[in-house]
Design a protein around this nucleic acid. Structure first.
Lengths: 155, 155
DNA sequence: CTGCCTGCAAACTCTTTGCACGAAT
DNA sequence: ATTCGTGCAAAGAGTTTGCAGGCAG
């Protein structure tokens, strides 16, 4: 999904819900989709302010749930105090797992198609119907441990 | 593992780390192991205070990481603002997944032995070595939806 | 025009921390 | 006697919210 197609989908979602298309919301959307990696609310605020200086923290926090509900953004909680977000470019409801590197703090996403099956299998035993599933692996960098440098390290 | 065996393990762990065996720590331990279900720090504080009124919130928060490191307690973060804890009665490092019911807010634990294999498989592709893995399914109660009552609902 | 959106700042929740006193070893 | 542990209260991080004014529809 191209960014302009995604932006269109966002406008449509807002209209459909009776929500207004404001400059701030568009700036926040654009900032989110300009970012390839995962980002926090605070990082999103910084980037959105480059596009529209009037964007406030409150509006970022109020817009994030909207974008999440519209499925344009995925919320990723790795249990670290703050939540991360990630542009959902595929549009589909692809099942993904996260691998969090404890050395470089990066979050990698890998598709985990079997996860849905597993959610079903485990829930049905309890008489439950699965809604969402999360699979997260925290890991350490082998190369870093052996050579002292992480091949993926940027900062 | 019986509660007295677990308490002994806790005393041993404290001694081995050069930490002191205080009434407060024991009260917090006992409160944790008297509880079958998952609990929050605040709930643990309430229950520990029944055993020893002098227990403070700060000590609970300082003791939780100790019990977690000693593997007597498992930390369960379902991404809901506050963390949950669960007495680890098996003692082993069994791989477990959580099923969180969105209707009754209960957390069910199910063993997921394949999770370790999966963590390995996914991490190695990235040149990483898995440390921990979490698998969580959020689900809705089928019976509740059909009959209006959750068979497991207590409150 | 009407009412949703906004920024600001204060409030909130959960957790952590500095300090002086108290208790375990 | 030493230290480490403790309670208290304040601080801290991340997020939410009440309000008065502003802008989309």
């Amino acid at each position: 999904m191209s960014i302009s197609a995604a932006r269109e989908k966002f406008r449509k979602f807002l209209a459909q819900k009776g929500l207004r298309v404001t400059n701030q919301r568009l700036a926040i959307f654009d900032a989110a989709f300009a970012q390839q990696e995962h980002f926090t609310a605070e990082q999103l605020l910084d980037r959105a302010r480059v596009l529209d200086a009037s964007v406030s923290r409150a509006t970022v926090y109020r817009t994030l749930p909207i974008m999440t509900k519209s499925a344009l953004l995925r919320e990723v909680d790795i249990g670290s105090g703050e939540k991360f977000y990630h542009a959902n470019r595929e549009g589909g409801s692809t099942q993904v797992a996260q691998v969090v590197c404890l050395d470089c703090d990066r979050i990698f996403e890998v598709s985990a198609p079997f996860m849905e099956w597993y959610g079903n299998s485990v829930s049905s035993k309890l008489g439950l119907r699965p809604v969402t599933q999360r699979l997260q692996v925290s890991a350490r960098c082998d190369t870093l441990r052996l050579t002292g440098t992480c091949p993926r390290r940027t900062s």
